Amino acid sequence: MKIAVTGKGGVGKTTLCALLARELASQGKRVLAIDADPNANLGEALGYDEETSGRIEPLIEKKVLVEERTGTKPGSMGGYFVLNPKVDDLVERFSVGIQGLRLIVTGELKEALGGCYCPENALLRSFLRHLMVERDEWVILDMEAGFEHLTRGTAESVGTLLIVVEPGQRAMNTAGKIASLAKQLHIRKVGYVINKVHSEGQEKRVADKLGNDAIWATIPFDFLALEADLSGSSPYDQCPEMLEKIRGLVRRLLSDAEE
């Protein structure tokens, strides 16, 4: 199953991705976690120690690779380059093993003046297409808000889109816009995960706005998650209450995958 996770910045989507990926891996599933957020920190949330093991270089920063696969130097726009470069070996070459799963950091798409395409984007889009369409493991994609990383073809291969939302008008408005875009891209299953909930009243207000049936999980605010972040620990190892809620969500996802 291919699961994309998005939402307004700061709502906790990276934490959700880490918990989902770790729990699926603990149940024996083959999991590939993809950090496509410009503020890449999924590795840390999974338990990767950057100070000891070094920074994971995003694919889009690998200039030699980009030029080798597209035939054009990074930073170039216009001209001729390979639009569908070879990417099927990148997971094996550049992913990092963490806690029984694999992680790869892609980096963000480059903004091109006047809508121009560039070799970095060609490589990244081809790679995401390969991940979402051709690979058969559980893929957890940590996205920025919006669908800049996904073309229509890759979006249609997303089995589930999880939109993380916290109690607050801005987060709810962003979530609603993302859900509308998901419908336009024909993503079949879309669910909201309410995070950082302090009370039942907050949960009800979010559910009333977004629709009760669309709420797939509710996760209470957890001070232990803050402590885990401060200490550089994975929330999977430090937040039992959050993990119990995630296990309920995973049961739903596993059931959907069997349909």
Rank of each mutant, 00 (worst) to 15 (best):
G54T: 00
L59D: 07
I194H: 09
G9Y: 04
S233V: 02
A122V: 10
E137R: 13
K8P: 10
K204V: 03
G115R: 01
N84S: 12
R152Y: 11
A112M: 03
L32F: 14
S76D: 09
V87W: 08
L103G: 10
A145G: 09
G176V: 08
Y117C: 05
L185K: 15
K62I: 10
D35I: 11
F147K: 09
K8C: 02
V197Q: 02
V164H: 09
D222K: 08
V206C: 07
R30T: 11
G232F: 13
I98P: 10
V91R: 14
L109F: 04
G47F: 03
L162A: 07
Y48A: 04
L254D: 05
K62L: 14
L46H: 00
I60K: 15
Q202K: 10
R30N: 11
M143Y: 06
P167Q: 09
I56Q: 11
E227S: 11
G7R: 02
P119H: 08
L20W: 02
P235Y: 01
V197H: 01
D213E: 14
E241K: 15
K73P: 05
S180T: 10
V133I: 14
E68F: 05
E258C: 00
S234N: 04
R152E: 08
A257N: 11
C118P: 04
G107Q: 04
L162P: 12
D213N: 13
R188Y: 07
I215L: 06
R30Y: 00
Q27E: 11
I163V: 12
F94A: 03
G10V: 04
G115K: 04
E44F: 12
V66P: 12
D35V: 10
N84G: 04
R188I: 05
T174A: 14
T218A: 10
T6E: 04
M77S: 10
R205C: 00
N41L: 05
T52A: 14
R205I: 04
F94P: 00
P235I: 00
E156R: 15
M242S: 11
G107L: 08
H130M: 05
Q202M: 10
L109W: 02
A122P: 15
E244P: 07
N84T: 12
T218I: 13
T160P: 07
K189A: 07
A182F: 11
L109G: 03
G176H: 08
G153K: 14
E156F: 03
P58C: 02
L224I: 01
E203Y: 08
G7P: 03
A207G: 01
G191N: 01
I215M: 03
S76Y: 10
L226N: 10
A18I: 05
Y48M: 06
S95N: 06
G114M: 06
A182D: 09
V165G: 07
G115Q: 01
E120M: 09
K86F: 06
A217R: 11
A214G: 02
D88G: 02
V165W: 08
S26Q: 13
E258S: 13
S157T: 04
I187E: 09
E57D: 03
F127V: 01
G10C: 05
F127D: 01
P220A: 04
Y48T: 08
E134A: 12
L253Q: 08
S233K: 15
L243E: 09
E23V: 08
E148M: 00
P167I: 02
R22N: 11
K196Q: 15
L224M: 13
I187Y: 14
L90T: 03
G75L: 05
L230Q: 06
V193A: 02
A171R: 00
G43L: 03
I56T: 06
L90R: 06
